[in-house]
């Protein structure tokens, strides 16, 4: 089944042509990464899929419905680049907030269980200001998926972290969240290895206006782990994608 479908989507902000003729089809359960230089419209694309922006032109469908309808059914979870946490609520209560709003009893897991899984068992009652950046990001992701939405949209969730933490979180995310789940994920990143590591498909966007420049299908076995990163196959993908990115920004 098609989870996300964009047909000839354009977006203008005043005279800025942020997105140009985006056609994208994401299957249910597929993990698709968007990569591209800063300002090429990745966040805009994600916000359109989340129903937070309307396309100026073209069609968006999520499981056959407009995004707002899917939001109504609580089937979209968004992990924003900047953690969307209330400073006055503990980690646990921030995750609960999602359930309070959606009125859903937890999906597969309770907030405690999910935070435990995410390695935050000892920080349930800590406030965001007391957590490290990486922990906050994990809480942020827990908030985005506790109600078990079919679509998960992630805007550079590990963007603000150092490389080591980032790699560790990536591996944890692959193992704890993605493996054996049927989630459809649209994932924005600036990191080529991060995109390859998680994705079934990597989409390269070109800037001004944002257009789909090239697509790569990633055929790496799952589960993926630290060994995957150093496999020849992985490094070959990395080389190819980097070449395309360099070629694109240097004007080909």
């Amino acid at each position: 089944m098609t989870a996300i479908m964009l047909t000839a989507v354009h977006k203008w902000f005043g005279s800025v042509h942020a997105l140009c003729n985006i056609n994208l089809k994401v299957r249910e359960g597929e993990f698709v990464s968007l990569i591209g230089p800063s300002g090429c419209g990745k966040t805009t694309l994600l916000r359109i899929v989340a129903g937070l922006e309307k396309p100026s032109n073209g069609e968006v469908e999520t499981f056959g419905y407009p995004p707002l309808e899917l939001c109504k059914r609580h089937e979209i979870g968004v992990a924003f680049q900047k953690p969307a946490l209330l400073a006055s609520r503990t980690a646990l209560n921030n995750v609960m907030l999602t359930l309070e709003i959606t009125g859903r009893k937890n999906g597969a897991k309770s907030p405690q269980e999910i935070l435990n899984d995410f390695g935050l068992g000892e920080f349930l009652n800590s406030y965001p200001g007391q957590l490290s950046g990486g922990m906050e990001q994990r809480v942020n992701i827990a908030c985005a998926m506790i109600h078990n939405p079919k679509i998960l949209l992630m805007d550079e969730p590990f963007g603000a972290l150092d490389m080591m933490t980032r790699d560790r979180l990536s591996e944890w995310f692959e193992k704890k969240v993605l493996f054996n789940s049927n989630k459809t994920v649209l994932f924005i990143t600036h990191s080529v290895p991060e995109a390859i590591f998680h994705s079934d498909r990597v989409i390269v966007l070109s800037p001004t206006p944002g257009e789909i420049y090239m697509e790569f299908t990633i055929n790496l076995p799952r589960p993926r782990n630290r060994m995957t990163r150093v496999s020849d196959c992985f490094l070959e993908y990395e080389r190819k994608i980097r070449e395309v990115l360099y070629e694109m920004v240097n004007g080909g």
Partner: peptide
């Protein structure tokens, strides 16, 4: 970003006010 999160969860106006705005 919290308001955006609330919107994607289809929060009611009252929920946004009470749980997010008033808390802040």
């Amino acid at each position: 970003v919290l308001l955006d999160r609330m919107q994607t969860l289809n929060a009611s106006k009252w929920q946004v006010f009470w749980k997010v705005r008033w808390s802040s």
